[in-house]
Nucleic acid binder design. Structure first.
Lengths: 180, 180
DNA sequence: AAAATCATGTAAGCAGTTACATGATTAC
DNA sequence: GTAATCATGTAACTGCTTACATGATTTT
């Protein structure tokens, strides 16, 4: 089974909401990067060109953008069909790579203090993200009910809230266990 | 900051427990792949050769292996130092890519039934992994107390148990929300 | 005797990151 | 006037996967 480039679907999916520039897409992707999807800059712009070549999107220069040219991309019917075909496929199992747990696996090579240091760092990062989630949740709930994407955005945020709370509970337990 | 190949540390870390063949390492990695670390076959064998060239491991043919040659790798003091230096570094933030949530993000392009199908698939996968965790936990708890790696193995399993339970709770909530 | 597993490996090619590069516009 | 941000991109490099390849040994 050939590997499928998913950058293209992330881009197409965002363009179903509204037409945007590469930079706009980049900004949205950056907010997602903390939780469930990350893209690098160097993938995004070439992909936009490729999608245009393939007829999945069209583009035009924003007239109001002056000398700093702003190219706005819009999804085509072909692009919508292509996206939908992918959306309907069963989710492919994702390969996990969490460095923290790899290191924890090899903790017998560290002192208890060193291991505790890693766990504390992990705990702080989870706390930071949980706080970030709170502000994102506030923003989502303030916005209009008319936006069709919002119930799903809320669901996703709720998922990560529940996940991170579980992670914090685990941190407490892990630190207690190591301190004995 | 240059990217660091982490395959090498996964290999070295496993070799601190005991000397093993490439195939043995592959088997251990496969069990980890469901949770927090995955490696592909095509990375493992070349890496073992590279580590040997760099003096991080040594190897010898297992005498008892007959015509089906079995090459056993052992970590060197240099390899141990190299591993430890990495273990001490703060954990690098990991880039998440969960296709399920990318698709859920774009669920306004699907019908409610189609979206529910994805959630059910996700729920079943989480349930399967939770069950796998239970059997792994039983095995860990049966083994000797003398094994230094076990308390950490148990901690890691507990982490994923808590995580997956949170995910299941979220699935329930998500399905209720969509069915209204 | 066939199937499963043990055991080790390579080639091709796309995926993905880091670092670099350029210039315009806005905020302080 | 300087820093931050807007805006778009490329080059070089390594990561990583898929598919393929080979042969021995054990289980059914």
């Amino acid at each position: 089974m050939a590997r499928i480039n998913k950058t293209q679907f992330a881009v197409l999916g965002l363009l179903t909401r509204k037409s945007m520039s590469g930079y706009d897409i980049k900004m949205v992707l950056e907010r997602m990067a903390n939780f469930y999807w990350s893209e690098s800059n160097a993938q995004l712009y070439p992909m936009l060109k490729k999608l245009e070549q393939d007829g999945m999107v069209t583009s035009s220069i924003d007239e109001s953008s002056g000398a700093r040219q702003r190219r706005i991309y819009a999804i085509t019917p072909l692009g919508q069909q292509f996206l939908r075909d992918w959306l309907l496929k069963p989710v492919a199992p994702s390969k996990q790579r969490e460095e923290f747990f790899l290191k924890l696996q090899f903790a017998p090579n560290l002192s208890t203090e060193e291991t505790l240091g890693h766990i504390k760092q992990y705990q702080e990062e989870v706390e930071d993200r949980l706080q970030l989630l709170d502000t994102m949740m506030d923003r989502v709930q303030e916005e209009l009910v008319s936006n069709k994407a919002l119930p799903f955005a809320e669901l996703i945020l709720e998922h990560y809230q529940m996940l991170f709370q579980a992670k914090l509970a685990w941190c407490e337990r892990a630190m207690k266990k190591l301190n004995v």
